[in-house]
Design a binder for these strands. Structure first.
Length: 254
DNA sequence: ATGTCACCTGGTAGGTGA
């Protein structure tokens, strides 16, 4: 089976890109970030026509997450239990024997800001919850927009980005703490092309110059490690007209 | 070149967030 994550940067704008992509890549599970739609505006009918059950959790203007599955899913969770949050950033469910958690980690703006502190607090809350979740669900996939480039090889110019948002040591520590729970970065289980990014700034001709970061990730629990057959980034949607600034990442499980 | 995009309010531009 195949599972994927994609920050669409407004599902209202990107619905056609999404349905086209799903037609070409009929993954079994897809989590979306930055839908930017309240639940009453979520295009559930269009996605049902495309063959997907949808769970969604949105808000006005910002954030918003969704989970699409070919098979029926159940036991949906919205946001982090026990972590009070006014922003819609997490959706999880059980499907095909797997526990799926889709996340839109706060961007954090810049070190030293309130938003940065919120990001770090949020990541601590996520870790505390996932520790419990993993104890109950051995086969778990955590995927989404983490807004963290875990290592220098995930950054087009590590010198420029050193200490900047998405690359600070505190953020990378939080990412490592997630791995320490017993999660594996599926992308790094395989040889990958150098300069593999999932996000390019709209500005500065960043995509044309391939100046990006790898900040969208798929982490699988140790119990799933042996089932991972491939993990790849699809940069094609970034070439379309009016693209999202992020592209999809897909993992294949046996 | 902080050079783009999305979405809001409230209006034919400016602010916020990424």
């Amino acid at each position: 089976m195949k599972l994927a994550t994609w920050n669409v940067n407004s599902l209202g704008v990107r619905l056609q890109h999404l349905t086209n992509w799903l037609q070409a890549h009929p993954v079994d599970v897809l989590v979306l970030q930055e839908t930017k739609l309240t639940d009453d505006k979520f295009p559930a009918a269009e996605l049902q026509a495309a063959g997907y059950h949808a769970a969604f959790f949105g808000q006005k203007t910002y954030n918003g997450v969704a989970l699409l599955t070919r098979s029926a899913h159940d036991t949906v969770v919205r946001n982090i239990p026990g972590f009070a949050d006014e922003q819609a950033r997490v959706i999880g469910a059980s499907v095909d024997g797997l526990r799926i958690v889709g996340v839109y980690v706060p961007n954090g703006q810049a070190p030293g800001t309130d938003k940065y502190e919120y990001k770090l607090q949020w990541l601590r809350g996520l870790r505390d919850w996932l520790r419990e979740e993993l104890a109950v669900h051995r086969e778990l996939v955590l995927m989404g927009d983490f807004n963290i480039a875990p290592e220098d090889r995930d950054v087009h110019d590590p010198a420029v980005w050193a200490g900047q948002i998405m690359c600070t040591e505190a953020e990378r520590d939080q990412f490592r703490h997630l791995l320490e729970l017993g999660l594996v970065d599926a992308f790094r289980l395989f040889d990958q092309p150098p300069k593999s990014w999932t996000w390019w700034d709209y500005r500065m001709l960043a995509f044309r110059k391939n100046q990006g970061l790898r900040i969208d990730h798929i982490l699988v629990s140790e119990a799933l490690r042996g089932r991972v057959r491939a993990c790849s980034i699809d940069r094609e949607p970034r070439k379309l007209e009016r693209p999202s600034d992020h592209v999809p990442v897909t993992v294949e499980l046996a």
